[in-house]
Design a protein around this nucleic acid. Structure first.
Length: 419
DNA sequence: AACGAACCCAACCGCGAGGCC
DNA sequence: GGGCCTCGCGGTTGGGTTCGT
């Protein structure tokens, strides 16, 4: 594999971009698109390497980038997704509209990682540090409780990670179908809107998510019904999720974010680290736009909210008993071109955000799983039977039993049970 | 006011994946 | 099948800014 020379070519400029360079790059891309990045600088009249141009565009000049302070909602999502995905910044950025992976990475390294560390949570494993657990004279019992809670979280991470991969697969398939059908049918989502919401660097864009939702609606009637039943069974979460949707719509200003999009992070992950107290401060009004000055003002008002937020994380860490969720789901049939059958059995804890004291019997629509490439370290006691329609090339380290059957194509078993 | 420390973040570097020839 | 090339990703750096003394 030959490495292409990049900025070491003589005459190519490095370092901070000037406004003139930005203008040239913007003007060129707006007129021609970026095309081949390598040839772009010469065409645009820039003394930069293509790589530098690409970075400047994707991290700074792209019109659909939101800058400024991260909201608490975004912080929550980052922490949750980091617990699930590790340092897969691009994947995390997929679920944070208008945020770049670089920005998220920087924010994590400069803010969130330090805060978690201060709280005695290992920012790598998202588990309580042993030295932090031992304090307070809790003794072995407390340590065991923390370990149990951490194990539950890790287990949840395993399930969620698999779900993320599955959704990415569905999105890709939906996009392919949408492309194939575009000649005969108008898109359900206005192209302009989709364009605004898409992230060029995302593996799962907004339009893909919308397409996914559409496919789920059209082709997965049973699954959709199951999901609706799940939502009904998850009443305690609903108010919070609705609030999140509202919050999201306020945050993204003019961009009306589809529930299947903006609500995704909230619906999918908000339960992981949060408890009831957190849902309260997420109801706060958010400024439509954020400027440096706004940030300073916001900082003055967020002290209590942030305290509550981080307290909630500590609550998670300190929680000792988590209810178990039992999920039985009829799997959707026609959406998968692959003839592989679906039979997934996942033992998972209920999300800690569910205030219900009773175990949940929750049907949940869960798509199948494709090539699984998460780097998340999974160390939980569980049995996951996942379909392997494609090569299963996980780099994840499962310390416990994970069965991945490759069923016969005709043996379609639509029911997924979570026990 | 001056200085050093700490922080922040845009940009760079190097690697791997995948496509093309 | 193998080499070359482009692109994307994650880790790291270094210069600017802010904070503390």
């Amino acid at each position: 594999m030959g490495r292409s020379p990049c900025c070491d070519k003589e005459g190519l400029k490095k370092g901070p971009w000037t406004p003139e360079e930005d203008q040239k790059l913007l003007a060129y891309i707006e007129q021609h698109g970026h095309g081949c990045w390598r040839s772009l600088p010469a065409k645009a009249g820039l003394q930069r390497c293509g790589k530098s141009c690409r970075l400047r565009w994707t991290n700074y000049l792209r019109p659909d980038i939101k800058r400024g302070k991260f909201s608490l909602q975004e912080e929550q999502t980052i922490i949750q997704l980091h617990a699930l995905l590790g340092n897969r910044w691009s994947a995390i950025a997929t679920h944070l509209p208008k945020r770049t992976d670089n920005e998220i990475k920087n924010y994590w390294n400069t803010h969130l990682k330090k805060r978690l560390a201060k709280m005695g949570i290992d920012p790598v494993t998202h588990k309580p540090r042993s030295d932090a657990l031992g304090t307070g004279g809790g003794g072995g019992a407390a340590g065991a409780q923390h370990a149990k809670a951490a194990a539950h979280l890790s287990h949840t991470a395993q399930w969620e990670s698999a779900r993320l991969e599955a959704e990415a697969r569905l999105a890709r398939e939906a996009r392919l179908r949408a492309l194939a059908a575009s000649a005969s049918a108008p898109p359900q989502m206005p192209a302009a809107a989709a364009h605004r919401l898409d992230s060029p660097t995302s593996t799962l864009s907004f339009s893909e998510s919308a397409a996914l939702a559409s496919v789920l609606q059209e082709a997965h009637g049973a699954a959709a019904a199951a999901a609706a039943a799940a939502r009904a069974a998850m009443q305690p979460m609903q108010a919070y999720e609705e609030a999140c949707k509202e919050h999201e719509q306020q945050q993204w200003g003019d961009h009306v974010v589809d529930v299947a999009d903006a609500g995704f992070a909230a619906a999918g992950f908000t339960g992981l680290l949060l408890d009831g107290s957190l849902s309260q401060h997420d109801l706060r009004p958010a400024p439509a736009t954020t400027t440096r000055d706004d940030e300073a003002d916001a900082g003055l008002h967020e002290t209590e909210e942030e305290k509550s937020y981080w307290d909630s994380i500590m609550n998670l860490v300190n929680s000792s008993s988590l209810p178990t969720t039992s999920v039985a789901v009829p799997a959707p049939e026609p959406a998968y071109p692959s003839s592989a059958s679906l039979h997934t059995s996942v033992a998972m804890p209920a999300l800690v955000a569910y205030p219900s004291s009773a175990p949940l019997q929750t049907p949940v629509a869960m798509p199948t799983v494709e090539a699984y490439s998460s780097s998340t370290s999974l160390q939980q006691t569980s049995v996951i039977a996942m379909p392997a329609p494609e090569a299963y090339s996980s780099s994840a380290s499962f310390s416990t039993s994970v069965a991945v059957p490759v069923p016969a194509p005709e043996a379609y078993s639509p029911a997924m049970e979570f026990c």
